[in-house]
Simulated scan of single mutants.
Amino acid sequence: TKQAKKLSLKNVRISKLSNLSLQLYSLLLKEGYVKGDADSKALTLYFEKKLPKYEFSELGFREKLFLYKAYLWYSLILQDFVSSYKYSQKWVDLFDENPEMKIQNPVFYLKGIDYLLESLYFSKHKTKFNKVLKKLKYDVDYHNITINENTKTLAFLSYNQNKLNGYFLDGKFTEGLSYVSQLVKELKKYEFKIDAHHTMVFYYKIACMYFGANRNEDCIFYVEKIINNKDLKMREDLLCFSRILNLIAHYEAGIDADIEKLIVSTYKFLFKMNDLHQVQRKMILFLKNLSNIYPQDLKKAFIKLHAELKIYENHPFERRAFLYLDILSWLESKIENKSVELIIQQKAKLLVK
């Protein structure tokens, strides 16, 4: 019958959308972002080939959810944060239009909110970011979603990782330290509920907070927790930037007894990971030659590196370096003889969004 055929087509469509979403998600977890033009083209070809044909008006809740997810993962892998904002917003709107689904599928809702916050953070959309963060807290506090052990942990993860991001957006690193102390205690309570990957993401963000507040030895303490975790299967990009941050923090803290060894091991690691982009390459070469630069020439060297890196700030495949570590602000702090915190705060004031 016509009805049966329609149902059969619907099931095939759901299955295809679900598979595409899953495959893209695992790609995002394993590889992070595209590393070049060839990657980007291959991904687009794959996406277009696997995306089933559909009439939007015929899609139900589940199909729309899988569709938005697939587009979201696709956008994130491409580092297209305008699109990732668009599709994570659609994902969240879908639940707001069907509030009963927040009760039935709270995990999906929380994840949608989390990706929306991530997209807003990456596109530095401060006002909207703060609004969504408040919405998340409100939904949890007023039980607009089903609260159980799982959703409590997810909400804890999302809220706190994004709270850290909020401090980064404003450049309020020193102010964020009292929050970090509290967070470290809270993390202990969730020790057995949060997987290693998410714990390491917290450590990286905490390390960045200390770095921004010029507490370099504390930064090293947290970043070494990531580097020394040999069993870790986590996002390659995070492992790479942990090492670069470690190197810069050692330099800033004046712990340079083993810096040559550290540079070599960092270089080898990045090289082995096939993740040596221009930004990392130039950073490593710069740090490698640092000991040969006379103090009076240091500022000139920082200016030169800044000019070399600045051109990559909006480069589609290179800019991810700046998402993990604001190297440009660090260099500007060296050039202008100001703290990193002050530099980032000055930039934050220009974010009218």
Rank of each mutant, 00 (worst) to 15 (best):
K272W: 06
D256L: 09
I244H: 02
E260G: 11
I284C: 03
I284K: 04
I259N: 00
H250L: 09
I263P: 01
Q280V: 04
I248F: 03
I244C: 06
F271N: 14
R281P: 05
M273C: 09
L245E: 03
I284Y: 00
H277L: 11
Q278E: 15
A249W: 00
I248N: 03
H277A: 10
T266I: 05
N274E: 13
V279P: 01
K282F: 12
N246T: 02
K272E: 10
N274W: 05
L270C: 06
F271Y: 15
I263S: 02
K282Q: 15
K282T: 08
S291L: 10
L290R: 11
L290M: 12
K261S: 13
L276D: 06
S265M: 09
T266M: 02
M283S: 09
I259F: 04
A249S: 13
S291N: 14
I255W: 07
L276C: 08
K268I: 07
I255T: 10
L276M: 15
H250M: 06
S291A: 14
I284N: 00
I259S: 08
I244R: 01
I248A: 05
Q280R: 13
D256H: 08
L290D: 07
S291E: 12
G254V: 03
S291H: 14
E252Y: 01
I284W: 03
F271S: 15
N289C: 08
R243Y: 00
L247S: 01
I263Q: 03
V264G: 06
R281H: 15
L287V: 10
K272N: 06
I263M: 04
Y267G: 07
M273F: 08
L285F: 15
A249L: 05
L287Y: 07
Y267K: 15
F269K: 04
D258V: 05
F271L: 14
F269R: 02
Y267M: 11
D256I: 12
V264N: 13
L245W: 00
A257Y: 10
N289R: 12
